[in-house]
Design a protein around this nucleic acid. Structure first.
Length: 580
DNA sequence: GCCGTTTTCGGCCCGACTGTTTTCAGTCG
């Protein structure tokens, strides 16, 4: 039997946490399973390797009991205590808790009292007015459950892609900033941390009074429905993409601590608040207080970290994956790559292959973003479906690139290719053509079905070609629909480091490939990166922001990312990397 | 269930909102 993958282990731990809550167990025991799941989710190392080396228990939050359970699950494919727990509770409860508004306690109550064992059965019970007969439930509960069921049905995975949501959120933020009385406002939540997917949008604003702000916010044309509204929080659902937006409005003196609180992550906060306790401080969204109730002045987030004697931690790093220890020791990198550092955008297509805009339009879009160069990397001949270029087409394209470079000032198009890495690991052009190009990205586009061994060897073989500069979207995943192809990432990155192959952090919202954990693995090995936009339209140059966010989440510094160099240095460095 | 530079027992982050309640439990983030 195939051993369960990491995602399965994480899911089982989360299920155990829920089942323990259903049983009414000690909530801290339940939380321990959740924390362990969080820890594994943020892990860059291979779970199987940790198990083999007996190092599972070295992970904070994983002790003897959970390590044993993970071990049992990984080695036997089953977990007896989990199965026993499931058997103790009514069937279907783990499905029921996926309905928003329905938590473990209510789910088990309804399952026991009404015999509902599925979301369908729950809906029927609501419609027949049976739910309101259960103590603690009323007519409103029924209506809310029906609304929750509809939401649950509309999308099995309610999390949206960062690249879909961020532009919507930033537009909304701009309008909130103009509402009456608003002093400061920011995006918060996993969106601010640049997680690859986000569940909803958190906006935090400061103003003298919340009421007028909420009135205006709820009346905005993009708002479809007001979910709830209290003293400091208001939740709405937008017409656009069915997105839920939570707006918090607080006095300006509480803005920094509120922004910090609603940025998360939960794991980061738990650690930080523990540290605060040791210093006799209490942190909440309403400020930092001493035990005697004195409130400390916290004008911005940096001040909050200073109170705990640690370096400022940027939002993208707040996941409790080592950033707290580093910040306490003063070892957090202070030169994480920023938007301002970027001089060029990597990976763009034009109408020469499957792009929608001309070379000149792409150049002008790059110019408008203040970029100094853009690498034009069309598909190669094997990618017939994507209008891949024959070698002759390429030469004609170079003439047009020269013309555009003469006419559009301040930005330079680099002559490149996204060449297919064929099934054999060979590249899809002759060396005679490849050596004339300034930028060669090699990517896998066909035959994803190879097994782990075959795919690993395919990539390593491609590294043998000295003209390959950059490995493009290394795992081929597409969120949420296509799994990454199987690959021994450690081996690929080891070899990339050894051979000077640069690795792409692809910024297309569905890809974000490398993902965060792999970025860290690459950097630990000294692999150099490019952040890319994989643009097929001029507007896609904005994908660079998503790639940048992923690189920062992986702790990438300015010097790790080659498109922070000038065009000349960029080209020279790509060549030098491979010559070394 | 995890954890420990006073502790191997006794803590564990913190609060808003809702619906159902007359003081709180459940859910969410």
């Amino acid at each position: 039997m195939k051993p369960p993958d990491k995602a399965t282990v994480i899911q089982v731990l989360r299920d155990i946490s829920l089942l323990l809550q259903m049983k009414g167990e000690n909530p801290f025991r339940s939380r321990a399973y959740d924390s362990a799941a969080d820890r594994l989710a943020g892990l860059s190392e291979d779970l199987g390797a940790l198990l083999r080396d007996g190092r599972l228990q070295e992970l904070p939050g994983i002790g003897q009991a959970i390590a044993d359970k993970v071990s049992e699950l990984l080695t036997t494919g089953r977990l007896a205590s989990y199965e026993a727990l499931r058997a103790e509770l009514p069937a279907g409860v783990l499905e029921l808790v996926r309905v928003p508004e329905l938590g473990p306690k209510k789910a088990v109550l309804l399952a026991r009292q009404l015999g509902v064992d599925s979301v369908d059965a729950l809906e029927k019970a609501c419609r027949e007015g049976r739910v309101r007969q259960v103590a603690g439930f009323g007519e409103k509960s029924e209506a809310n459950l029906l609304a929750g069921i509809e939401l649950y049905r509309r999308s099995n995975n309610p999390r949206r892609l960062l690249g879909e949501v961020l532009p919507v959120a930033e537009r909304l933020l701009a309008s909130v900033q103009t509402l009456p009385g608003v002093i400061r406002a920011s995006v918060g939540g996993s969106l601010r941390r640049r997680a690859e997917t986000v569940g909803d949008v958190d906006l935090i604003a400061s103003a003298a009074g919340a009421s007028a702000v909420f009135d205006a916010f709820c009346a905005a044309p993009e708002v479809a429905h007001v979910i709830g509204r209290g003293e400091s929080k208001c939740s709405v659902r937008l017409h656009e993409k069915d997105l839920q937006v939570d707006l918090r409005v607080l006095p300006d003196e509480d803005f920094a601590t509120a922004l910090h609180h609603f940025t998360g992550s939960r794991a980061h906060h738990v650690r930080l608040r523990g540290l605060a306790q040791e210093r006799g401080l209490k942190i909440s969204e309403w400020g930092v207080h001493r035990a005697d109730g004195t409130k400390l002045h916290v004008p911005d987030e940096a001040a909050l970290y200073r109170l705990l004697d640690m370096q400022y931690i940027p939002p993208e790093l707040r996941e409790d994956t080592g950033e707290i220890e580093a910040a306490l020791a003063g070892k957090l990198p202070e030169d994480l790559v920023t938007w301002e550092d970027l001089q060029g955008a990597v990976h763009a297509h034009s109408t020469w292959s499957d792009g929608k805009n001309s070379l000149e339009e792409m150049a002008r879009a790059a110019q408008a973003l203040g970029l100094k160069f853009l690498t034009v990397t069309e598909h190669s001949q094997a990618s017939i479906y994507a209008g891949g270029l024959k070698e002759d087409d390429l030469r004609r394209q170079w003439e047009e690139i020269d013309r555009v470079n003469d006419s559009v000032k301040g930005v330079r198009l680099l002559k490149g290719i996204e060449v297919d890495i064929l099934e054999s690991g060979a590249l899809d052009y002759t060396d005679a053509v490849l050596e004339q190009l300034e930028v060669v990205i090699g990517s896998v586009h066909v035959r994803h079905g190879m097994d782990e061994d075959q795919m690993t060897r395919r990539l390593l073989k491609a590294f043998d070609n000295p003209h390959l500069h950059i490995l493009g979207h290394p795992t081929g995943r597409m969120l949420p629909s296509r799994e990454p192809y199987p690959l021994r990432m450690e081996e690929v990155l080891d070899k990339a480091a050894e051979r000077g192959v640069v690795v792409e952090v692809n910024g297309k919202p569905e890809r974000l490939d490398l993902k965060t954990e792999h970025v860290r693995m690459a950097l630990e090995r000294g692999v150099k990166l490019v952040v890319s936009c994989d643009a097929h339209r001029a507007v896609d140059l904005g994908n660079l922001a998503f790639s940048l966010g992923t690189a920062r989440r992986g702790w990438a510094r300015r010097g790790d990312v080659l498109n922070t160099l000038s065009a000349e240095q960029f080209i020279a460095t790509l060549r030098k990397q491979r010559a070394a």
